[in-house]
Design a protein around this nucleic acid. Structure first.
Lengths: 160, 160
DNA sequence: TATTGTTATACTCTATAACTATA
DNA sequence: TATAGTTATAGAGTATAACAATA
């Protein structure tokens, strides 16, 4: 009985967490759209630019892995950026099946404004938390990834 | 200088939070789809069923407000459920502009399985956290909503 | 005039499946 | 055969704008 009650409470807490997480993320996404729209970028495209600015030229497969999407989705994301001349595709000299992606000069010129937009969106949602609360929050989310086996943001390596 | 450095660090922390939040939510959403698919439900539809089971019959405007979507989106969500005969629309007797939505018998019969699916998805992501960590997490997300002025999940009233 | 919900439409994000080129 | 990336297609989720019915 006590066991069952405990399990139930824990499950309900997980569901409450899920609900709160969804709402917070919805607010973050909407704010991001507002801030990125004037730059002509979608949220997904901004994520691509961010990994490219962090890591330089990447293969499409790397983009997909870092962003936790299937290869087809990475293609869509990069297509828009290439059409806007913000990134460039070129064949991988070491493996001609692969395609490398890198920022163009125009893409690099956009990075400052991208950073401002990304930060503004983040501050809009997290700005009210104290520094200690943010650290706590980051630690908890990292626990989720590490223990939950998140292949992307776990272990402080491949985070977008 | 110190002020600037502090601001920068706080902003970077907010951006890191945003990134981690996105990844966690992506995992949660994918897990939810997997668990809800066999029930013939989308994640959005499950959210509607959940508020209806929590609160009984609601006007469309209430559904939209509780789920933090525009009225048109609430219409889409309810359309699918009505087509599946899980909810029923009927005119509000007090205001004939309004439409009330409520669960049908079939909708109520689905609630147990819905609850299991929702819980399984939540546990998949949050199950590795200790009880204390979950409480901490919930408290932080509630801070976000309250201080950030979230009209939906703030103040422990209208949370989905 | 203001409000409720709808029809019409479109955009973002993501996915599966089949195919091509290369390894 | 296996892998990388694409074309083709589809579906989920959400939004704006114009409109009808009602208040």
């Amino acid at each position: 009985m006590a066991r069952s009650a405990t399990t139930t409470a824990a499950g309900d807490q997980a569901m409450e967490l899920a609900e709160l997480l969804v709402h917070a993320t919805r607010r973050l996404h909407r704010g991001s759209m507002e801030h990125l729209g004037p730059l002509g970028l979608t949220v997904a495209q901004a994520r691509v630019l961010h990994v490219l600015s962090d890591r330089g030229a990447l293969r499409m497969a790397d983009v997909a892995a870092l962003l936790d999407v299937v290869p087809r989705t990475a293609t869509s994301m990069v297509d828009g950026l290439e059409a806007a001349a913000l990134v460039r595709r070129w064949p991988d000299p070491e493996d001609r099946r692969s395609v490398r992606v890198e920022l163009t000069a125009a893409g690099r010129r956009l990075l400052d404004r991208l950073h401002v937009a990304r930060r503004a969106s983040a501050e809009q949602v997290f700005g009210t938390l104290t520094s200690a609360e943010r650290r706590q929050f980051v630690a908890l989310l990292e626990q989720l990834c590490e223990r939950g086996g998140c292949s992307v943001c776990g272990h402080g390596n491949g985070a977008l």
